[in-house]
Design a protein around this nucleic acid. Structure first.
Lengths: 212, 212
DNA sequence: TATGTTTACGACCGGTCGGTCGTTTAGTAC
DNA sequence: GTACTAAACGACCGACCGGTCGTAAACATA
């Protein structure tokens, strides 16, 4: 049971409010470009007040990563888990991911894609954490693809890791190109590409829904 | 004919030296995270001396973009143009791009990928310039793919833009994942994926070289 | 030699950064 | 009421940022 203490409740409220805002700002200014003054001012709280919740900027950054992961799980992974395992679930992951991007929840597109490219050459705690997240994510995707193989939805020789890589690459590229080449065209192409690929490799192509 | 004036020659030398270094640093710290003091110190020149060549940080950033494009043209586009138009050229683009990444020329992987994700939500001159570069690049890729269609190397119904998008997405994802999941695995997967795709769609799969 | 030009420098400026510290406010426990 | 605790604040610090300005050295021109 959660605490009844009004002080702790209040603290928890601010904490999530700050994380929400910091997550938004981080997708625009970058996880490192993020400034504590910006976060504090945009929430009408004092900068020093932030240090009551996180010891340092780095601690806040790590908390933002956790927050982003929770959001990703909620908006992409969980909806996909509602679909039957295998190819249909892999497709659902792709679909919900693109829908998440299209909804414009984060002004900067995708927190994790942005962060990976920002930190790919900057060793440290943040980078290590991001690397772990990416490993987890690809493990998840590969797991879903593997189920498609074991269920016989694709021929036995098909490389599950390859299917996962295809899925990931189409998603990442979409969120990169969408602001430049237009969301509609970009996301349609990203959907079409994986749909064609999965149907081409599927034992029974009709297992996937039609592309509207 | 180029100038003989020793002052101008000297100026040109420093200018390219600065751009070389700034390009490297930008892939690590980001195009905006780049600091003039860093660049100056790492080259043993004074910060104020940089302002003799570029009026502002933004002007230097734009120059770095130009510099990165020249490098990209030199290391990726030109080698690919040595191959016959169509599918073989599209494959050569992919191959030389991944080779460029693998060679570790830029410590941060890919300047343009990093910059796109850094600026995708930051309106301004830099973002506009990057957008133009991406449009150019996708136009180039689509053009190469279109030649494959007009030459009959793929069936008439195949979507050239889709081929271009596939190629781009596999390349971008590779440079994102390589530092985390290991360069060898990642780049092999990126090569394998496009190779399979192009062979699957080709009228005559043997037009492409074997994957070593 | 004298003149003009280009490159490069050191000193300095206002502003923002991450972070510290002592204090106040709001709420709990007794 | 008092004692205690967690949350939040304002003032302040040193470091670094992008940028300005006056000056000196290197070089070409004549």
């Amino acid at each position: 049971m959660t605490t009844q203490d009004g002080r702790l409740i209040r603290g928890e409220r601010t904490r999530t409010a700050v994380l929400d805002q910091a997550l938004l700002l981080a997708t625009v200014a970058g996880l490192d470009g993020l400034s504590l003054s910006q976060v504090a001012d945009s929430l009408r709280v004092s900068k020093s007040g932030l240090f009551a919740h996180w010891r340092s900027k780095e601690a806040l950054q790590l908390a933002v990563i956790d927050h982003a992961r929770a959001q990703w799980t909620d908006r992409v992974i969980r909806p996909a888990l509602a679909e039957p395992a295998g190819l249909r679930r892999l497709w659902a992951v792709h679909h919900h991911r693109l829908a998440f991007y299209e909804a414009g929840v984060l002004p900067g597109g995708c927190f994790f894609a942005n962060a990976h490219f920002e930190f790919n050459a900057r060793p440290g705690v943040i980078r290590d954490r991001l690397a772990a997240e990416l490993t987890d994510w690809m493990t998840f995707l590969t797991g879903v693809a593997t189920e498609a193989v074991t269920r016989g939805e694709v021929p036995a020789g098909v490389d599950a890791a390859g299917l996962a890589y295809q899925t990931e690459s189409l998603g990442v590229c979409a969120v990169m190109q969408a602001p430049v080449l237009g969301p509609e065209t970009t996301f349609r192409q990203a959907r079409r590409a994986l749909h064609d690929h999965l149907r081409a490799v599927a034992t029974d192509p009709t297992i996937l829904p039609e592309l509207t």
